[in-house]
Computed example of a mutant assay.
Amino acid sequence: MAYIGLRKPIIAQRTGAGKYSTPFVLGKAISLNVTPNYAEGSLNADDGQAEYDKEFNYADVTLGTSTLPIEAHEKMFGYTVSTEGKEVTMNANDESSYVGTGWVTVEKIDGVRFFTANVLVKVKYSEPSEEYSTKGDSIEYKTPSISGRALKEDDGTWKKVKQFDTEKEALDYIYKFFGVTNPQETV
């Protein structure tokens, strides 16, 4: 299996366990890194290791996108967005919300291309650091990268993955997971 693409980061604010508000696209995907972290423990007995356990604890998530839409500031980071949707006010007392995060990876297995829908069910992101520079002899793009932590649901689920033959099927799966009843209208 080889990953040969990353597309369509989709965010949906959590409204409860397994429930989400209307999802939105978080710019265009540039990079994504999901690093699971595990709690480990072992028992030594009779001069050797008798038991070993390793359980999912959380996953660190770093997502690079082409842009962060204004909607993300309100639904992800808890900032106040003006009624006309053009001004964001950030307050020290604002608190980030849990969101679901979906994306599509393109994979090639034995020469056959697949589109895989991926969903992290509960993630809390921090606002991105901001970096600016003056324009010089060449144009240099600066894009946002947000980081957060993915947690598990009460039933232990922290990620869902399903493979499809087309990108549309993978996107439909993600939108349906977030509760969109007619994904064709959203996509």
Rank of each mutant, 00 (worst) to 15 (best):
I70W: 06
G18C: 10
L6C: 10
K28G: 14
A170K: 05
G102Y: 08
P69Q: 02
G18F: 08
G179C: 11
G136V: 03
D46P: 04
A150E: 00
V123R: 00
K160F: 07
G100W: 00
T62W: 00
A117G: 13
K168C: 02
E107W: 13
K160T: 05
G48F: 13
A150V: 00
I139Y: 04
Y79F: 11
I4G: 01
Y20K: 14
S96F: 11
N37V: 12
I4V: 14
K8M: 11
L68C: 01
P69Y: 04
S96M: 08
M76D: 03
K54H: 10
P144E: 15
V99A: 05
V25E: 09
A39K: 15
I11S: 05
E130K: 05
M76V: 10
D155A: 01
N57A: 15
E130T: 11
K142Y: 10
A72V: 06
F114T: 08
P144H: 15
Q163F: 08
V123I: 06
V88G: 09
L32Y: 11
L120Q: 03
L6P: 00
S133Y: 06
R7F: 15
P23G: 11
T101S: 07
T166H: 05
L6I: 03
P9F: 10
T80A: 10
T181A: 11
A29R: 03
T105R: 08
S147C: 09
T186H: 15
S147R: 12
G102K: 08
V104T: 09
L32K: 05
M76A: 07
V112W: 07
I174Q: 06
L63V: 13
V99R: 01
Y141S: 09
K86V: 03
Y132T: 13
